[in-house]
Amino acid sequence: MDKRYAQMSPAEQVERRREVLSHIQARPELSVDQVVSLLRGELRFTLSEYSRLTGVSARVIQDIEQGRGNPTLGTVEKLLAPFGLKLAVVSSRAPRLIQGGE
């Protein structure tokens, strides 16, 4: 855990994870970089801790968080898997009905 913060008890850590995951699930419009940044920041992981947890280099994580990265699906899966999350496709607007041969 990031040393800038007071140590949380295991119960506090579990509760914080539940809150963060609920927040992410309630906002499916969040981009990958926003989710990665939110997970790492709110759960108080340093870059090196998150890197060790996921097997993704700290530099790649940093680039993703700053919107400079272009991660592969495999990388995104590695970043989300420890939290029981998966990448999904959601509609960004109301569905359009397809008519005729369109």
Results as ranks from 00 to 15, higher is better:
Leu43Thr: 00
Glu42Asp: 12
Asp33Gln: 15
Leu43Ser: 02
Leu87His: 02
Pro82Phe: 03
Pro71Gln: 02
Gly41Asn: 15
Arg44Leu: 01
Gln7Leu: 11
Ala94Ser: 13
Arg68Glu: 11
Ser57Arg: 13
His23Ser: 11
Ser91Phe: 12
His23Asp: 12
Arg44Phe: 00
Leu85Trp: 04
Gly100Lys: 08
Leu47Glu: 07
Val36Phe: 03
Leu53Asp: 00
Ser48Gln: 10
Ser57Trp: 07
Ile64Thr: 06
Val76Asn: 09
Arg17Thr: 10
Ser37Cys: 12
Leu73Ala: 14
Leu97Gln: 13
Lys3Thr: 06
Arg96His: 10
Arg18Trp: 01
Pro82Met: 07
Glu65His: 00
Glu65Lys: 00
Ser31Leu: 14
Val76His: 08
Ala58Leu: 03
Ala88Ser: 11
Asn70His: 13
Met1Gly: 14
Ser91Glu: 14
Gln25Asp: 13
Asp33Thr: 07
Val14Pro: 00
Val89Asn: 04
Ala26His: 07
Gln7Pro: 02
Glu49Thr: 06
Arg17Asp: 01
Arg16Ile: 02
Ser9Lys: 15
Pro10Phe: 07
Met8Glu: 15
Val90Pro: 03
Ser9Glu: 12
Val35Leu: 03
Val89Met: 13
Val76Met: 10
Tyr50Asn: 00
Ala6Thr: 11
Ala6Gly: 08
Val76Glu: 06
Val89Tyr: 05
Leu30Thr: 04
Ser51Phe: 06
Glu65Ile: 02
